[in-house]
């Protein structure tokens, strides 16, 4: 155990670039590495990812392990677990960070069990314990009703981190680092699954995760038609529409609009919460928003404990008036 050293980040790419979560992880990882007085590394796994190694260095990595192989084009549990096992055994880090993405949350636990260690998924905060030097892993539990701080005494300590909770470093192209190529050495017979098709959800306008303004509705909206009024405001503010779980379950909005512990995690500049009570489950998907504004007829609704501004009243009356007034103000 004594020979484990350093922090390593599992990098993801998107559209030929480092994914935003990867730069966030490097930002967080560099702080942890500095505190430990150790190195920060990154791993890039995929097909045609070698060129991004320099990017990872510009965002803070001292070392980048690259596993570039045509067989790794799509994420597959078996293949990626086996490649990561190999990299981790070579790099021997104390800490491994991944994103809480559809890849990270699949890879982290499988890899943790393979390496006979443990992982914490969906962390909001990571810090080094001053006395034990172990990684303090803070994550929401009980559907966001509580938070827990975990440590793990087996190495590497593995954590996945929620998107948009960590700050990336400034990109610095003059940074120097070492690039290490690792051979995938995959046994095709060891890969039992086959990805037949990847389907991207069609999104009109701005993606929920990228939107600066999100207009979100709850059970109180009552119908698909009701949501068209939310869409109108969202369109005007160049934002996106979100929802709590009941509107998704009832088919008023697509399942992809769900925000919460079981849906998307977002952190827009402005979150306009309409006719939703603000359950812990839902809030853990949007509590990172800069400003929350609530419209609800129940003055006791939990959402008013989270919001900065609120209107107590029927949304059917308040929302059109809000939309109209904003239209007037923003035009003027």
């Amino acid at each position: 155990m004594a020979e484990n050293k350093g922090v390593i980040v599992f990098g993801e790419t998107a559209g030929g670039k480092l994914a935003a979560i990867t730069t966030e992880l490097l930002g967080c990882g560099s702080k942890l590495a500095k505190e430990l007085g150790q190195e920060l590394s990154a791993v890039l796994v995929g097909s045609g990812v070698s060129d991004l190694a320099k990017e990872a260095i510009a965002f803070g990595a001292d070392k980048v392990y690259v596993v570039d192989d045509a067989q790794l084009k799509d994420y597959q549990t078996d293949a990626y677990t086996s490649v990561m096992e190999k990299v981790i055994k070579q790099a021997m880090p104390q800490i491994l960070l991944l994103g809480q993405t559809s890849i990270g949350r699949d890879l982290a636990p499988r890899l943790a069990f393979r390496l006979k260690t443990a992982a914490s998924l969906g962390c909001l905060e990571l810090a080094i314990d001053p006395s034990s030097k172990l990684l303090l892993q803070t994550k929401p539990v009980y559907g966001g009703n509580a938070q827990a701080v975990f440590t793990c005494e087996t190495f590497p300590q593995i954590a996945t981190v929620r998107v948009k909770t960590m700050e990336p470093l400034e990109r610095d192209q003059s940074r120097k680092g070492e690039i290490i190529t690792v051979d995938a050495a995959l046994e095709p017979s060891a890969i039992k699954t086959k990805v037949l098709e990847k389907v991207a959800e069609k999104v009109e306008g701005v993606r929920l995760e990228d939107a600066e303004v999100v207009v979100s509705g709850g059970r109180g909206i009552g119908s698909e038609e009701g949501f068209t009024q939310l869409e109108e405001l969202a369109r005007m503010l160049k934002g996106a529409v979100g929802a709590t779980r009941p509107p998704c379950d009832n088919g008023w909005v697509p399942a992809g609009a769900q925000i919460g512990l079981t849906g998307k995690i977002i952190a827009p500049d402005l979150y306009i919460a309409i006719a939703l009570s603000g359950s812990s489950q839902h809030m853990s998907g949007c509590s990172g928003s800069k400003t929350i504004v609530a419209i609800n007829k129940d003055p006791e609704a939990n959402i008013f404990r989270e919001a900065r501004f609120g209107v107590v009243g029927d949304w059917k009356k308040a929302l059109p008036a809000l939309t109209e007034k904003l239209k007037e103000l923003l035009a003027g």
Binding site: T193, K194, V195, L196, K198, V199, A200, E201
Partner: peptide, 8 residues
Amino acid sequence: EGYEVIEV
């Protein structure tokens, strides 16, 4: 992004 179809 959406979903993927996997055979196993």
